[in-house]
Nucleic acid binder design. Structure first.
Length: 594
RNA sequence: GGGAGCGUAGAACAGUCUGGAGUGUUCGCCGGCCUGUCAAGCCGGAGGUCGCGGGUUCAAAUCCCGUCGUUCCCGCCA
């Protein structure tokens, strides 16, 4: 079919007769001579055509699929294109064959222009021809290759686990699959292979990994899809450092292959509490400072009611120095609205003037000592804008952490800042005041005694890896003692009968000489997104879904034939029926009979 | 579930605030000219349910209400 790949031709090939095949990128018609760029997966080569000899060149349009035979020759002096790797040479066409014409394109395959994502997704196969997207596909493949190479070298076994599994009410919403053979019963698609990989430790695998598709039926975001891919791994006879070392090795290898740089290991480690206090998040972006500063001492005796009541109420007063900012009223209002969205009741802003005085709607409530202390604590200079929040501790750090990102986060991901966040709390309170696990219920506590006596302050043996403020993944040392596992369920308010019903099979497995073990999982989509400097996970997923979970190309999800539902013992509810009547277009014709 | 932005030709936009004939720009498409371009250039042409529905008005892309789609965010995401 072809003798060479287009992008690999060079001066060495001058004089040889070659056949290449690919797509017409651009045609340039000069009347007496015509050029077109032929693109294949390896790159571009310019083809020169004499239209007298080959009148069919007039028919070529963008993205026609063609095969060209001809002689490679050096370009005439002065017409070389230094922008192209193949720019020293060109092919003088002796034969041009149109393998497949193309319809007029629905959008230009051009990285210089942003096309509406809906249009791109409708024709994703064309979108993926664009250099940027083709590079993302390659980067992803290189990432998984690096992962497999590294882990294979370390003696890991790649094992597949089922994708039709049990539903569990904990955690995210499950994607459900109705069973035909067991009518009325459902499988769930896995949110992660968590319990299966623990079972593999009991099975004696010792070192497991899998590049696993995971499913969580929650609302999408720029960095979240309904289905996503994780590197999932687990090791027996492992403690924290074994897991962390392995992950650092894998990440360093992927970064080396995708970015061509060495990253420093071991990564910096922050405890969860330090991360929250200094950056207001459990996934800090360390590429910039703007750290949160505590002002509880400065305002300990303040007459300003908002601060004093927060402090009396066991809360705190903290601030960030946002640095020099344009600060018109409209911006102050917008930032205050954002603070409220993040959970604040309000926001105090203070601008430091040239003369060291402060401008703020509430400056009159501050004593001179307080103003002085404020400026000192935040190391504020003329022009700096200080944002102060006063409330419960968690609210204050959440709000300031969010504002810190809005005001200081670098664009893109030129720089890479990895870190570990460790010493997560074992449990947390949900909004109803119920105690719930903060990682997952199979995470080992740091101290069993503390877990029993003081669950609210208990620390877990869980850790997250964070890159540029993106949570790449998390892991933990697991519980390998069935009694400890039962106790955790008990603290979580899962009674013995329920635990037995849902996890009895797993508690049973734990009783057969389970080795101490731990592991990790990180999102490959997110990692590649950052390394490729993409703003959204969708740019590195070949066929993603929209925010509403639809695929504009295939139309998924769709209505199904009534008989399919009958076979499954499933019926549409009233609301679903209304929707179906209102938008019957995706409905397949009901040609089935009983 | 909620908030915000966006929706005008095949694509990307301007026009919307302050209502007055579907007006315009770039790319693509169709035709013509052109022998060294590489985002070729020049000339000509076609192409529009201004997302959809309703309202206000003598008159709506523009104002109002509703709705659909999409993106970002809050909630949610062990």
């Amino acid at each position: 079919m072809r003798t060479h790949r287009a992008g690999e031709l060079g001066a060495d090939d001058a004089g040889s007769r070659v056949t290449v095949a690919g797509w017409v990128q651009r045609r340039r018609d000069h009347g007496g001579v015509e050029f077109f760029d032929l693109r294949d997966a390896s790159g571009l080569i310019q083809v020169v055509v004499d239209p007298e000899e080959h009148p069919s060149v007039h028919d070529l349009r963008m993205e026609f699929c063609v095969r060209v035979t001809g002689e490679v020759r050096r370009r005439p002096e002065g017409t070389e294109n230094p922008e192209l790797p193949t720019g020293d040479v060109e092919i003088g066409a002796a034969d041009i064959e149109i393998l497949a014409p193309s319809k007029t394109l629905p959008f230009m395959l051009d990285d210089r222009r942003d096309v509406d994502e809906m249009v791109r997704l409708k024709h994703r196969y064309l979108d993926l021809r664009r250099p940027r997207m083709a590079a993302n596909l390659r980067a992803r493949s290189k990432a998984t290759a690096a992962i497999r190479r590294t882990l294979d070298g370390e003696g890991f076994l790649e094992v597949e686990t089922p994708t039709l599994v049990n539903s569990t009410p904990e955690g995210a919403r499950d994607m459900l699959v109705p069973s035909r053979l067991q009518q009325g019963e459902f499988y769930a698609l896995p949110q992660s292979p968590q319990l299966f990989k623990q079972l593999l430790m009991i099975s004696g695998v010792e070192r497991y990994f899998q590049i696993a598709r995971c499913y969580r039926d929650e609302d999408s975001r720029a960095d979240r899809q309904l289905e996503f891919t994780q590197l999932d791994l687990e090791g027996a006879f492992w403690a924290e450092d074994d897991v962390l070392d392995t992950i650092e090795t894998v990440l360093a290898e992927v970064v080396r292959d995708l970015r061509g740089i060495e990253i420093a290991t071991p990564f910096q480690r922050l405890t969860w509490r330090d991360a929250m206090n200094r950056f207001g998040t459990d996934k800090p972006d360390l590429r910039f400072a703007m750290e949160i500063t505590d002002l509880s001492d400065v305002f300990a005796d303040t007459g300003f009611g908002v601060f004093s009541s927060a402090l009396e109420d066991d809360g705190t007063v903290k601030a960030i120095n946002a640095g020099p900012q344009e600060w018109p009223r409209s911006r102050a209002d917008a930032i205050t609205d954002r603070a409220k969205e993040l959970g604040a009741k309000g926001l105090v802003w203070v601008v430091v003037e040239e003369d060291g005085a402060v401008r703020s709607p509430v400056a009159k409530f501050f004593s001179d000592t307080e103003t002085k202390g404020l400026i000192e604590q935040l190391d504020a200079g003329p022009g700096d804008v200080i944002l102060i929040a006063a409330d419960k501790w968690r609210t204050v750090v959440d709000v300031l952490g969010g504002l810190r990102l809005d005001l200081g986060r670098p664009q893109g991901h030129a720089e890479l800042a990895f870190l570990w966040v460790v010493d997560f709390p074992l449990f947390e309170e949900d909004e109803d005041g119920e105690i719930t696990f903060s990682h997952h219920p199979f995470t080992s506590p740091a101290s069993i005694d503390q877990m029993r006596d003081d669950p609210e302050n208990a620390i877990s043996r869980a850790y997250d890896v964070v890159l540029n403020g993106v949570e790449l993944g998390s892991g933990s040392i697991r519980i390998h003692d069935p009694d400890v596992q039962r106790q955790v369920f008990e603290i979580l308010g899962i009674d013995e009968e329920t635990a037995e019903r849902r996890f009895g099979w797993f508690l049973e497995a734990l009783q057969y000489g389970t080795p101490p073990h731990g592991g990790f999982a990180f999102g490959i989509d997110r990692l590649v997104m950052v390394l490729q400097n993409e703003p959204s996970i969708r740019e590195v997923i070949p066929f993603p879904k929209t925010q509403s979970g639809q695929d504009p190309m295939t139309g998924a999800p769709t209505w199904v034939e009534p008989i399919q539902l009958r076979e499954l013992g499933v019926e549409l509810g009233a609301e679903a029926k209304l929707r179906k009547e209102a938008s019957p277009s995706p409905e397949p014709a009901d040609t089935q009979t009983d």
